[in-house]
Design a protein around this nucleic acid. Sequence first.
DNA 1: GCGCTCCACTAGAGCGCGCTAGGGCGACAA
DNA 2: TTGTCGCCCTAGCGCGCTCTAGTGGAGCGC
Lengths: 360, 360
Amino acid sequence: MGGDHVKGRGGGADGTPESAEPSPNGRRPTMEDVAARVGVSRALVSVVFRGVPGASASTRERVLAAAAEIGYRPDLAARTLASSRSRVLGVMLTVHNTFHADLVEAMYAEAEQVGYDLVLSAHAPTRHSEKAVGALLGHRCDALVLLGPETSAGFLEELVERVPVVSVGRRFPGTRVDIVNTAEGRAVRLALDHLLGTGHRDIAHLDGGGGAGSVERRRAYRDRMRAAGLADHIRVLPGDHTEASGAEAAHRLLAEGRVPTALFASNDRSAIGFLDAITRAGVRVPQDISLIGYDDIPLAGLAHIQLTTVRQDSVGLAREAVRLAIERLDRPSLPPRSSVLEPELIVRGTTAAPRADVDD
Amino acid sequence: MGGDHVKGRGGGADGTPESAEPSPNGRRPTMEDVAARVGVSRALVSVVFRGVPGASASTRERVLAAAAEIGYRPDLAARTLASSRSRVLGVMLTVHNTFHADLVEAMYAEAEQVGYDLVLSAHAPTRHSEKAVGALLGHRCDALVLLGPETSAGFLEELVERVPVVSVGRRFPGTRVDIVNTAEGRAVRLALDHLLGTGHRDIAHLDGGGGAGSVERRRAYRDRMRAAGLADHIRVLPGDHTEASGAEAAHRLLAEGRVPTALFASNDRSAIGFLDAITRAGVRVPQDISLIGYDDIPLAGLAHIQLTTVRQDSVGLAREAVRLAIERLDRPSLPPRSSVLEPELIVRGTTAAPRADVDD
DNA sequence: GCGCTCCACTAGAGCGCGCTAGGGCGACAA
DNA sequence: TTGTCGCCCTAGCGCGCTCTAGTGGAGCGC
């Protein structure tokens, strides 16, 4: 295995070892090449590729044809350097989160429509948000979109002084960060009203810990239970937004022997972990216990899961995130805004009327 | 929708975007600014940030301190433009794949060690690989690492003429693409020998369809079964690398009434889908059927899943992918290489001796 | 004829950095 | 003193592009 590190400065012999093809690793074609081929100035080629007025239709066509022939594509680095805008949005996500995956997919489509590109940077256990954001900054993104950021408000406050920031799913009151999220209160009410409507009274909440939206969901759960006159049944089980915490909660409930008739989980991952563990223990869902999640991740709709859940509008969240970012670029002095999207209850197979042996 | 929260910035002044503060969205600091602050030339600051010899320790320290003060960080676009190398590796991944998430996390660490940065571009149902790769190219990545690419060999063949390409998990014989993968043959033998060793003979394979490595796994399954004199028991169930296909396979098996004593799945996702569906149908794992997966994704090790699986060394794959890419940059004329990593059998709770009522 | 506007196009100055050819200077030998 | 080596450091070009200012020519009204 390669043990040699040739650190030649300047690259040594520039001679392309291969043939003299249009672009054999040697040098990538530039605007100059296209211009020369068509017989116009470089500036005009630039005009064509930026899609601004200033070139006749026939010239435009010839330029594009020549570019295609030699395999030219604009160099983003040079474009970024020359213009004040890079037309790139930086997105920080948690790679292990499939809901983030949904958001990213939708954001690609949204960004493309307004002529923007996305650069992804991952937050992970071994890679702090600060580092992920740093990488994005280095790429000179015009704006950052942070998906469920777990950074401190202080860090964001500094960050937003350097670049527009949109946070998806987590609010940062008191900072200039723009916010996109789901109407958590209404979402929780949708979930609880569904359970209450089918006769449940003993409804517990599986908490989301430090996850995005957890605080709001917990509070809304408490509020709704109180409003329904069920303050005595309020029960928040510790957890976070992972499958493991759902499974743990299930085991804990079983060990305590105090299984509620319904559980409202702070997100789908923990709900699925709970579902799996409780099912294995012989507790039937929904006959013995109803379960409701949050997010509507792809897994939730699978035939064997059929999780009832509160759907977050990932496409809508993505659209708003991109929109807010672009608007902020155009008008930096705008006050911080927040865009709140409507949730939707997706009733599937994990909820039903409570078991008969319970009364209180 | 969306309420506006107007937050006056401390200090009374209404945040004028064009003020002359250290760095209020106006202009990001440059090397020039750092140089001026320290009282040295710009070139010397460059030396410090590139980490090359040529600056005294004390100067180095003062430069870094000044940079930190004014929040300077090198502009990747300018750096890329000026040098022939961008020191950026482009990674294409499937954003919904958690094994890819593991790989990406490990690659970040590897790349950082050799002074490289990663740019992620997602392949998704609505975003073809070609587009994802195009975006990477626009960012002028030095090399591309494609995770389980589902592109045509022809496309890759053209691509590799423009930029070094490393494929992880999928082989492209006959092209100049460098390959990193797990020794599929040995991996499959590990899995099957484990099952054979505990007495299983009726072992089916849940196929991976078009997924990375599927072809090799299917062939190795057939080979091993034949070698064990079990050609009559060879049974490949159609599927792909998703949970849904595993669940479907379970339902199909139950409907047919021909449940094998063991199933070797082409990846963990389909294994988990199968596990969930078959468990719900009342079939016990591992008492009634043993199950073994492939990859060892994070979910597999969770308390309530405990999936026996063949572990792919994600850290090793990541390391090799980065190494091959960098080596190729240093020596473009190297012949195509492939790096094959050893798999490891992880025995957890889904495998055991076959049920007693079966004999043949 | 003149002045004017409009359109297609060009010239050339940077954007922030990497990189090479040197300049300045202290140390040491002759 | 004069070299001469070595270390820190500086000057300045150019990467591929955007963008402002400007050029030339056709068309129009007077």
